[in-house]
Design a protein around this nucleic acid. Structure first.
Lengths: 335, 335
DNA sequence: CTTAAGTACTGCAACGTTGTATAGTCCAAC
DNA sequence: GTTGGACTATACAACGTTGCAGTACTTAAG
């Protein structure tokens, strides 16, 4: 049985509350007493019991991060950054995988773990904006592209504008048959829809016809399969905008294994700027969201809502984060 | 203020304990009472308070997973698998990033969060076996290659044997100048040492000279840099065994960008079988640990230690998991 | 000398839950 | 008609912590 305040108090010859005061850095404790208590704490190896603390205070010091899947590098990198940002506030992060199932996402928000976490950073995949309850027990920060004017705080880049930029880059290379990989029918697939919108916008500006290839999900295998279908079809593209980097890496794999040169025959651009793309062959042009800033802002937003002060309430905030077009070999190389 | 047992009890006209009994599925509750209580629970949206439950029971239902970094695909994939395995026991997983700092790893084991977690799955990078305390408050399962006969349970593949296999594969291709990338001086870098041992073993069998290239850490950039140094040096290799897949992908990037053919001029093999290697160009030969099984066993081991029954005590267990040599284009391709 | 303010510390209650002890009811068996 | 057992429900105490109220002493001001 680990020692409690009681045991420390007995050993130091003071009351339980005094020990508590020392632990919490309360000012009015005589130096001599403080030293005596501290000695007892060290001797017994006392560690505060978080469960009891939480029971009293209602705060656990734990925030949850819900992502579709850690196996995707983008989410893994984001998770890492959020853990780092949370650490600066000495919060711990509990990671939930939703696998993109709407029901799991709904359960999460409905607050199954309501008492265990102080806040939730949520990167929804299947959940549409309307699915979120108007007011939630624990503050929620939404991550990634979302419908604006939702009921919760959210941090995102302007996905549509970024997609348009990527497409315009391909157009600027002189390409005319520009395909998009990653199209999804499901109306709740907001990411796919926003990137598709940007793609269509840019093509319309240049009066070029869209070539839209669906993808069941956003993994390498889906990109490889979609590219294969495009190559087997009637309208072989000379450039492809993939809705994320994994799709792009899969597409490049198919292209190269069929003897197509990248970017010579087909230029490819992705989205997310995962580390893989910086070392792939060819290296991958992409849209780079300012991921560290997204993580920091998400944590800061939670921090404001949790601050017992005034800023806790207030209307949902929508923070937009910058992105950059990163041009690498897959669109500008010699291959 | 969220409702508690008290509120439900008042609404259903029963005692607090009866509500508790309903919630916990205690058998001897009259059907009528149960229904009435359940109705009150639903009406109020009662959710048990985990903090209070933990305070009573000493169990939080949370296990921690400590990995060096989520940004590395291998650890991200492993984290995902462990979250899935834990979910089957309805445990949640709290993820800690140690960044490979020995001090952070030590703190973790010393149990800063001792009261908050029921168990720890730990993938140490900097911590040597001796650093672990003999007996810990919370059960610990070690992941990845470890010195055998340590003080805690552990699950690992036979890293040395696997490294030897990979090296023998290169020898079998007829290569004679076989380099290793990922050598680390630090005696606590167990992974690097074990893989180096396997490499040396296989080379010694074939009476071939070792060519050993250090790497500061196990990222793509380190692999790229190490490969560049090898190519600039005197003994240009015709094959490379990289201590993990990221190093290998970095090495391949350097080779291709300098006009070397892979595997034509230099064959490359990695270790871990991360998803990237299945879609890179060329696809990456590698050693594939049975990762889902590692995750499952790690969680099961914790489960046994936490089982209030008999199996809780007992000497540390060492579980070995299978691995496979996966041959892809980077050693067997046409390039 | 009285009052007020500040310092150092203590004791009690409460957070929401569950284990143990207990009490009452009902029915069957002796 | 008593005894014993199974069933149903309750009361109380704890788990370890902290907020609040309160006591006792010291110092400074009026």
């Amino acid at each position: 049985m680990p020692p409690g305040l009681k045991d420390v108090a007995a050993r130091a010859g003071v009351s339980i509350k005094t020990v508590s005061n020392v632990v919490n850095g309360y000012v009015h404790v005589a130096p001599a007493t403080r030293a005596r208590v501290q000695a007892a704490i060290d001797a017994l190896g006392y560690v505060p019991n978080m469960a009891a603390r939480q029971l009293r205070s209602g705060r656990s010091g734990v925030i949850a991060l819900a992502v579709p899947e850690l196996q995707s590098p983008y989410f893994a990198e984001m998770a890492g950054l959020i853990v780092q940002a949370a650490e600066r506030r000495s919060w711990t992060v509990l990671i939930d995988q939703t696998d993109g199932h709407a029901e799991r996402e709904r359960n999460l928000v409905a607050g199954l773990r309501r008492h265990a976490i102080d806040g939730l950073i949520f990167s929804p995949l299947a959940l549409a904006g309307d699915d979120l309850p108007k007011r939630t027990e624990t503050p929620i920060v939404l991550l990634g592209e979302r419908v604006w004017h939702g009921p919760a705080d959210h941090v995102a880049i302007d996905s549509t504008a970024a997609a348009a930029e990527a497409t315009r880059h391909l157009i600027g290379l002189g390409r005319r048959r520009i395909a998009a990989i990653g199209v999804q029918e499901d109306p709740s697939a907001v990411t796919a829809h926003q990137r598709l919108a940007g793609y269509r916008l840019a093509l319309a500006e240049a009066a070029l016809p869209p070539i839209e290839a669906p993808a069941a999900s956003f993994h390498r295998a889906d990109g490889a399969a979609a590219m294969a279908r495009l190559l087997d079809g009637d309208s072989r593209p000379d450039a492809v905008f993939c809705f994320n980097d994994l799709l792009a890496l899969g597409a490049i794999r198919t292209l190269l294994s069929r003897g197509c040169r990248v970017p010579g025959d087909v230029a490819v651009i992705g989205f997310d700027d995962i580390e893989d793309g910086r070392f792939s062959t060819p290296t991958l042009s992409t849209i780079a969201p300012d991921a560290p800033r997204i993580a920091q802002l998400a944590v800061d937003l939670l921090g404001e809502r949790l601050g017992d002060g005034s800023a806790a309430a207030g209307p949902p905030r929508e923070l937009r984060v910058d992105h950059r077009l990163v041009i690498r070999e897959s669109t500008a190389g010699q291959g």
